[in-house]
C-alpha cells in the first residue's frame, strides 16, 4: 500500500484527531474566557486590597511563565494524589487555566483602552457599576479585544498538539500512528496535518473577522 492509499484509508482518523483538537481548543478557550474575564473584572473593578489582587498577579505570572508541557505533567501526574483526572480533562484544565492568564491580559488592556469618560457618563446617568460595565464598557472592550483574541485563538490551536505527551490522541498523535505504522513518510503525513491545522486556523479566523465586521461601528477606533 503506498502512502497515499494509507492516508486515504486513515483520513477519518486524522479527522477524528482534528475533532479531539477542536473540542480541546473550544473547551480551553471557554475556560480561558470565563476565568480570564473574571480575573480582568476583579483586577479592574474589584476590591483593591492586596489579599484580592496579589493572588491574581501570582496566578498570571505563574501560568504565563511555566511551559505548557510542564503544566500538562503537573495536572496529569502531580494532581493524581488529590484527584484522579483523566488525560483529556487534565489537558483542558492545564491549557484552559493558562489561556485564562493570557486572556485576562487581553481583556484588561481592552477594558483599559475604553476612555474613563464612558464609565463616568454611564454612572452619571444612574447606571450601577455592573450595568455600566455590561452595557457600556464591555461592548466597547470587546471590540478592542477581538484582534488580540484572534491571535490567542491561533496560538492555542498549535498548543493543542502538545496534549499528546499525556496521552491525548489528537491530530498530531494520529499522524504519528500513520508514520510509525508505515515506517516513514514523515513529510507527506505532516504536510497533510499542517494543511488540516491551517484550515482550522483560517476557518476560526474568518469567523472572528466576520464577528469583528459585524460589531464594527462607524468611527469607532480599534
Amino acid at each position: 500500500m503506498d502512502i497515499y492509499d494509507v492516508l486515504l484509508r486513515d483520513f477519518p482518523f486524522l479527522l477524528k484527531g482534528l475533532g479531539v483538537a477542536i473540542v480541546l481548543l473550544a473547551a480551553l478557550l471557554a475556560i480561558g474566557f470565563l476565568l480570564g474575564m473574571a480575573i480582568c473584572l476583579i483586577t479592574l473593578y474589584g476590591p483593591k486590597t492586596r489579599l484580592v489582587q496579589w493572588p491574581l498577579v501570582v496566578y498570571e505570572r505563574v501560568f504565563r511563565g511555566v511551559p505548557i508541557i510542564i503544566m500538562l505533567f503537573i495536572f496529569f501526574y502531580g494532581l493524581s494524589g488529590i484527584a484522579d483526572i483523566p488525560a483529556f480533562t487534565a489537558a483542558i484544565l492545564a491549557m484552559g487555566l493558562r489561556s485564562a492568564a493570557y486572556q485576562s491580559q487581553i481583556f484588561r488592556s481592552a477594558f483599559q483602552s475604553v476612555p474613563a469618560g464612558q464609565m463616568m457618563a454611564a454612572r452619571a446617568m444612574g447606571m450601577s457599576k455592573v450595568k455600566a460595565i455590561r452595557h457600556i464598557i464591555f461592548p466597547q472592550a470587546a471590540r478592542h479585544a477581538i484582534g488580540p483574541w484572534t491571535n490567542e485563538f491561533s496560538s492555542e490551536i498549535k498548543e493543542t498538539s502538545l496534549a499528546y505527551v499525556i496521552g491525548v490522541v489528537e491530530l498530531t498523535r494520529q499522524a504519528h500512528y500513520i508514520i510509525t505504522s508505515t515506517q516513514g513518510n514523515v513529510l507527506t503525513v505532516f504536510a497533510v496535518v499542517a494543511l488540516l491545522y491551517f484550515i482550522l486556523n483560517r476557518a476560526g479566523n474568518s469567523l472572528l473577522y466576520a464577528f469583528e465586521r459585524k460589531l464594527a461601528v462607524p468611527g469607532f477606533e480599534k
Binding site: 469618560g117 444612574g126 466597547q140 468611527g219 469607532f220
Partner: peptide, 20 residues
C-alpha cells in the same frame, strides 16, 4: 446614588457619548 443620579442630568465638557 444611582436613583438620585437618574433624576439629575449631567452634561460633560467633552460630551462622553457612548461611542459604540
Amino acid at each position: 446614588i444611582d436613583a438620585m443620579r437618574a433624576r439629575m442630568g449631567f452634561v460633560f465638557q467633552d460630551f462622553n457619548l457612548f461611542s459604540h
